[in-house]
Simulated scan of single mutants.
Amino acid sequence: MNVEEARERILSAAEDLYYQKGYSAVGMDELRTTAGVSLRRLYALFPSKDDIITAVLDRKHSEWESGLTGRVASAPDTARERLLAIYAYLEEWFTTESFRGCAFINAFGELGGTHPEIAALVRDHKASFQQYVTALVRDLGASDDLAAQLSILAEGAQSTAAISRDPAVAGQARSAAQTLIDSALATA
């Protein structure tokens, strides 16, 4: 197996294990076994567990952005519908069998207080989402306050759906978003 294949196997195994069990619960030996690589190869590619976690979160960030922007782009061509597509994307995600909440919120909850570099990655990811929502809200002609409200609503929906295991949370969040958007449009 070449370097790229080994790296992919490690990252895929790490992503699955961390998402199922948590970042702290998974040791390098379990990761090595699941990935089917030697411990030497694992450490050659990722000298520390933090390096693997960082690579997994970078990958999750790319997946999130790609999935979200793709879903928003497929929405009917109005700024309002593009904003509401965020919640449709959440609903699609929440209904997957593997849904265990936001990998970034999970990482911050487990590691944010002791791993400043992980906390910074999480903050950057969340800021990126906020900027994306802000751009969509500006297309609507509403204030940046609406973007903050819609972002908080989406973040809260992720946590609530993970805890309750109820994908209906996305529909509830969408309904609240509609109310916020319509109110913002009425006052604009």
Rank of each mutant, 00 (worst) to 15 (best):
A186N: 08
E97C: 00
A161S: 12
H115R: 15
A79E: 04
A79S: 12
R165G: 08
A25N: 13
I105F: 08
G171R: 12
G109A: 09
S66I: 12
A173N: 08
Y18I: 09
E92H: 10
S62L: 14
A85N: 02
A157F: 03
A177M: 06
L111P: 00
G101Y: 08
E110Y: 05
R80Y: 07
R138H: 10
A148F: 12
L140W: 02
R123P: 00
F94H: 01
V37T: 04
L31A: 04
R9W: 01
E117G: 06
A13H: 03
A177I: 06
A173K: 04
G113C: 01
R123G: 08
T34G: 00
A162C: 09
Y89H: 15
D16C: 02
I10L: 06
I118E: 07
Q20H: 10
I53N: 00
D145W: 05
I118C: 07
I86M: 09
T34D: 00
A186W: 07
L153M: 08
F104A: 00
A35F: 01
S151H: 11
S62A: 15
V56R: 02
E4F: 10
E91N: 09
R59T: 08
I53T: 00
E110H: 06
D124C: 09
I163L: 14
S164H: 05
P167A: 11
A142L: 10
A44H: 11
E92C: 05
D16M: 07
L84C: 04
T187Y: 11
V169N: 01
R59F: 04
T95F: 00
A75W: 04
A127C: 07
S164F: 03
T69Y: 09
T33C: 07
E97D: 14
G112Y: 03
M1I: 04
G27R: 08
A44V: 06
T160V: 09
R9H: 02
A35M: 05
A44E: 10
E91K: 13
V133I: 15
L146W: 01
F129Q: 05
